[in-house]
Design a protein around this nucleic acid. Structure first.
Length: 419
RNA sequence: GGAGAGGUGGCCGAGCUGGUUGAAGGCGCACGCCUGCUAAGCGUGUGUAGGUCAAAAGCCUACCGAGGGUUCGAAUCCCUCCCUCUCCGCCA
């Protein structure tokens, strides 16, 4: 949620944000609504003040056993008027709030302006693409020949885009998740949480998935609940409607969760194998920080995510997103793209964003500063990282001439756990 | 799913025979006094949001789980819903 007062003062900033983010909100209609609302609010308040005042007089008269019928007659008219005003005001507020929820966050000033990914900036690379002395196989061939993924049976029991991990594919998946969780806990100081995968509408609105992404998420009609597309949703909303003591900041959470995405309208686009699926696993980092620190923390989180790829010895690049590629709620985002040599392309495995106070406003997450003033925290999150494309990169990078896979040593202890 | 109890300020907790109760009292917190230090004691203050205003102060309005109703007037009465707890049922 954006700050309505700020919108009133600098509407051009928001018009630009809407245009640069390829959104459609009508800022001027919103301003008009706001104007109308304030006018009505004033009228309502004035009538209410009159009513409160006369009510006192009536009470006084009744106590003194005096006749109050004249005042009562006047008041029934005022009360009728208040009723009308109140319902008009209610409607207006509902409309205003709904519209306000469709205004995207302002991109940070330095974000490159552009309407598609061609305006993104590559910031740096780690390692170079590895070279091989034999013809490479891609993820699908490797997964099939090594029998650790079963797309057919996944399609049978659920539909396309629901992979089944079999035998050591399942074990590898679990090993990767455990490794990443422990890495963030032990080396980066995050606190683990395990939150629900199904949440209510308020929660989905708090982080900004609703109303915009309604069609990209799975909804359970009978209970009016939603399947989370990322752990960001449940973890960030953990502190919704709370006032956090300043000394508890920063809060650093890491959470594993499956993620559910309908990916509506994306059929046929990079959907081969594990590239784009409806259910996948992800380890997510979420932080609640003092507003002064959020941009320093953003850099730190990008580096936290990079550490995972470095630990696996994978070649990747860091991308700074342009305004058009920025998500609705984000002010600034970096993507990590890992190299998949068999497929011959870079794949996005992490997206790290600073939402500034946009989510905090929606979810009402505040802290009390040194002067005792209530302020919104800044929230950030980043994948650390998502598993399917990481697995593509791992098996394609570490394939051998025989069509097998020589996984990096760092994963061995996680694959050889004994009971 | 059924029955019962309950949801009041940072917390605890009155009020619930409708009218100076935004809300007693206590705890906590802040400041001051007192005190060798600490504790105790005394005094004062201590919600959030919206509006008005250039801004602050001030003033006005709203908020006692949420929404609606009755009434001149609702924390208090009525209805619907949500949540928590206890018991029963069902169940991994």
């Amino acid at each position: 949620m954006i700050d309505l007062k700020q919108l009133r003062q600098n509407p051009e900033l928001y018009r630009a944000a809407v245009a640069n983010k390829n959104e459609k909100t009508d800022i001027d209609a919103l301003l008009e609504l706001d104007e109308k609302r304030r006018k009505l609010q004033f009228e309502f308040d004035t009538s209410k003040a009159r009513q409160n005042q006369v009510s006192q007089e009536i009470a006084q008269k009744k106590r003194n056993r005096e006749d109050a019928s004249e005042l009562l007659a006047e008041m029934s008219i005022v009360a009728e008027n208040i009723k009308t005003l109140s319902s008009e005001l209610g409607n207006l507020n509902t409309l205003l709030e709904a519209t306000l929820l469709t205004v995207p966050n302002l991109p940070q000033a330095e974000v490159p302006v552009g309407n598609d990914e061609s305006f993104n900036r590559e910031l740096r690379r780690y390692l170079s693409p590895p070279s091989y002395s034999f013809p490479l196989k891609d993820q699908l061939e490797l997964a099939t020949s090594n029998r650790f993924l079963d797309f057919q049976r996944g399609a049978k029991i659920s539909g396309s885009g629901f992979p089944v991990y079999t035998a050591w594919g399942a074990k590898l998946e679990r090993a990767i998740i455990s490794f990443m969780l422990e890495y963030h806990i032990q080396k980066h100081g995050y606190q683990e949480v395990a939150t629900p995968y199904i949440v209510n509408m308020k929660t989905m609105t708090g982080t900004g998935q609703l109303p915009k992404l309604e069609n990209d998420m799975y909804h359970i009609d009978e209970d009016d609940l939603w399947l989370i597309p990322t752990a960001e949703v449940s973890v960030t909303n953990l502190h919704a409607d709370e006032v956090l003591p300043e000394k508890e900041l920063p809060i650093k959470y890491v959470a594993y969760s499956p993620c559910f995405r309908r990916e509506s309208g994306s059929y046929g686009k990079d959907t081969r194998g594990l590239q784009r699926v409806h259910q996948f696993n992800k380890v997510e980092m979420v932080r609640f920080v003092h507003p002064d620190e959020s941009y320093a923390v953003l850099q730190e989180m990008v580096s936290d995510a990079e550490d995972i790829l470095k630990a696996f010895g994978l070649h990747y690049r860091v991308i700074e997103l342009c305004t058009g590629d920025l998500s609705f709620a984000s002010a600034k985002t970096y993507d990590l793209e890992v190299w998949a040599p068999g497929s011959g392309k870079y794949l996005e495995v992490s997206s790290v964003s600073n939402f500034e106070d946009f989510q905090a406003r929606r979810a009402n997450i505040r802290f009390r500063d040194k002067d005792g003033k209530l302020r919104f925290v800044h929230t950030l999150n980043g994948s650390g990282v998502a598993t399917p494309r990481l697995m593509i990169a791992l098996i394609e990078t570490y394939q051998n001439q025989e069509g097998g896979i020589d996984l990096p040593d760092i994963l061995k202890p996680w694959l050889e756990l004994k009971v």
